[in-house]
């Protein structure tokens, strides 16, 4: 498959840490607007995959292209983020001393250079956009609260809201529903689905019912490479997947 017309193109990506191969020849293709769920046992390389896409880790070998022509392996994290790749970490990391509003304002798509931020004054459009995101994430009433005082679920939502404010072309979401109640999980699934279409989304998740609720194409990783790809039902029936995932 050629890299053109894809949003994200990974081919033969390998990473090793002191002899331990975290990724071995991983290949993955995402189309614009697509939503993908990634599952796999612990140590399958899910987080490392996100690390190499976002520039946190440099791959030893392999190609990573964004929108067909931008080589991500040469860029630093901030540059990659500015291309339009947003990432949500496994553990919610919001800026705890800041208010909910400030968190969103920081994330909001706007010039990122120091001198620009030094003289930044919020515009009416920006204000409206933040209001909108507060609405979507149901945090309107909490806008002046310190982010550190939010509940775990609220922090997860705030972080998703921050991703939305960044308005990325591709969202990488690592275990968004860990530690959430069933109701919150359901709402999160709805939220992510509503985002897909405008944005491409990669979701890494352990929670099978959540993956089922998303109802999207599933990629199974194991020992650093792709084991199977297809609908959840199809991969669940795959004998190899059963052996590696369910067998242990």
């Amino acid at each position: 498959m050629s890299a053109e017309s894809t949003l994200l193109y990974l081919d033969g990506v390998s990473v090793s840490f002191d002899g331990f191969k975290a990724l071995r020849g991983l290949s993955l293709v995402m189309m614009p607007g697509e939503m993908r769920a990634i599952i796999g046992p612990n140590g399958a390389g899910k987080t490392t995959m996100m690390d190499v896409i976002t520039g946190k880790t440099r791959p030893d070998t392999g190609t990573i292209l964004f929108e067909g022509d931008t080589d991500l392996t040469r860029l630093r994290e901030a540059a990659i983020a500015n291309l339009g790749i947003g990432r949500k970490f496994q553990r919610p990391t919001v800026f705890e001393p800041h208010t909910v509003w400030d968190n969103l304002e920081l994330a909001l798509k706007a010039p990122r250079r120091p001198l620009k931020t030094l003289t930044y004054a919020i515009s009416r459009d920006d204000r409206a956009r933040i209001e909108e995101i507060l609405d979507i994430t149901r945090l309107s009433a909490l806008r002046s609260r310190q982010a550190g005082s939010l509940s775990h679920g609220q922090k997860q939502w705030l972080e998703i809201g921050m991703l939305l404010a960044q308005d990325p072309k591709l969202l990488l979401v690592d275990e968004p529903v860990a530690g959430m109640t069933d109701a919150e999980t359901e709402q999160t699934a709805e939220l992510l689905c509503s985002i897909a279409g405008k944005h491409s989304v990669i979701v890494v998740e352990h929670d099978m019912s959540f993956v089922r609720a998303l109802g999207v194409k599933v990629t199974v990783l194991a020992e650093g490479s792709v084991l199977a790809e297809g609908s959840l039902d199809a991969v669940s029936a795959n004998q190899q997947v059963i052996d590696t995932y369910l067998g242990r």
Partner: peptide
Amino acid sequence: RDAESRVRFMGYDT
């Protein structure tokens, strides 16, 4: 100060 890598992934050249 509190979460540098998060800021970096938001596109700020920390």
